[in-house]
Amino acid sequence: MDENVSVVHKILNYLYLTLSKTIPAIPFSGQYWLEEVTRGVGACVMDEYGKELELSSRRPADICRAYLDILDREGFLEASAYRLEEEGENVLVNLTRSRCIYLDFCRGAEKEELFFYCPRLGAFQACLQRVLGSEYSREVTINAEADMCRGRVSPTRRLKTEIVTREGDLLKIAGERAILLPKETYASIFVALKEYAPHIIKTILFDAGYLSALTVAAQAKTFYNTPLEALEALFEEVKNCGLARVELVSLEPGAGRAVIRCYNSFQVATVKKYGWFYRTPRVVCDLLRGMFSAYLTVLLERKILCEEMRCEALEGDYCEFHALPDESGAQAAGSEPLV
C-alpha cells in the first residue's frame, strides 16, 4: 500500500478515535451518533462509487464483497484481507486484525475503554441498506490473542437511535419535546408546591416520574430484545439526563423483582443544597422511584412497584430501590392503567 494511503488511514483512525473520545463528554450519550457517522461514510461512498458496484447476486455477502472490491480498485484496502461468509440472511466478516485499516482506532478505543463502532461494518450496513432497502445492525467480537476480528451484519427491524435527540429548535426525549432544567428550577418548583399545596408533594413526584417514563420505556422495549438490555439502556439515559448514575444490582424478570442502586441522585443533591422539604428526614427520590416503577412495569408487562429502601439523603453513599410485583390488586386513584 502506498505511503499516501497509509497517511490517509492514519488520519481516519485519528478522526474516529477523536470522535470516540468526545462522545463521553457529550450530554445525552451520543453513542449511536458514531454509528450514524460510520454509516454516513458508507452512504457517501455509495453515492460516489455506487454505479461501479459489480454485483454477482443480490445476496448480502455478495453485495458486501462488491463494496470491498470498489475500495480495493481505488487502492484504499485489500479486499482479499476480508473473508465473508453467509449465515442465513447474515453476513459474517472475518479479518486478521493486523490487516484491518482501522486497527489503531480499534486498539486505541479498547485501551482507553472508549465507545467503539467498527467503521467497516457500519459501511456494510449503509451499502446493504442502499442496495436492498432494508436496515441492518452489526455486532463485533475481537479475539486479541488470535489476532482475529469477527463481525456479523444482520437484518434488523429498526435501527437504535439516541433516545434524546434534537430536531431543529426542539430537544426531544423518545420523540416527545423535552426541556433541560437546572436543579434550582426543580427546587423552586418544589418550594412553591410546599407553600401552596403541601399535601400533594408526596403523591405528584411519584406520579410525575411514573407517567413521564412510560413513553421512553415503551421505546426502549421496541429497540432491545430483553428487559435487561432495555433496562440498561434506560439507566444510561437516566445518567445522560443528569438524574443519577444507576446500577442494576439484580433482575429476575420471571419473578418481577429487581434491586436498583442510584448514585448522585439529583433529588438527594437538591435536599443537600436547599434543605429538607419535609418535616422529618426521609427517603426523597420519589421521582426516580416512579420512573423505575414505570420502566419495570412496561418491560416486564406486569404491575411493578419500586420502593426506596435506603436513601443517600439519610445515610451512605447510594440510594437503593427494591422492585416487586404489586399484588394488592389496588388501582391508584386517577392513574392510567399500568399495563
Binding site: 412497584l305 420502593e307 416487586l324 404489586d326 389496588a330
Partner: peptide, 20 residues
C-alpha cells in the same frame, strides 16, 4: 389484606417493606 390494598392505592409497595 384490606390495609395492603389501601396502601396499594397510594402506590406503596408493601411487599418490599414486608420482605425487609
Amino acid at each position: 389484606a384490606v390495609m395492603r390494598y389501601h396502601l396499594g392505592t397510594f402506590r406503596v409497595g408493601t411487599r418490599a417493606y414486608e420482605e425487609a
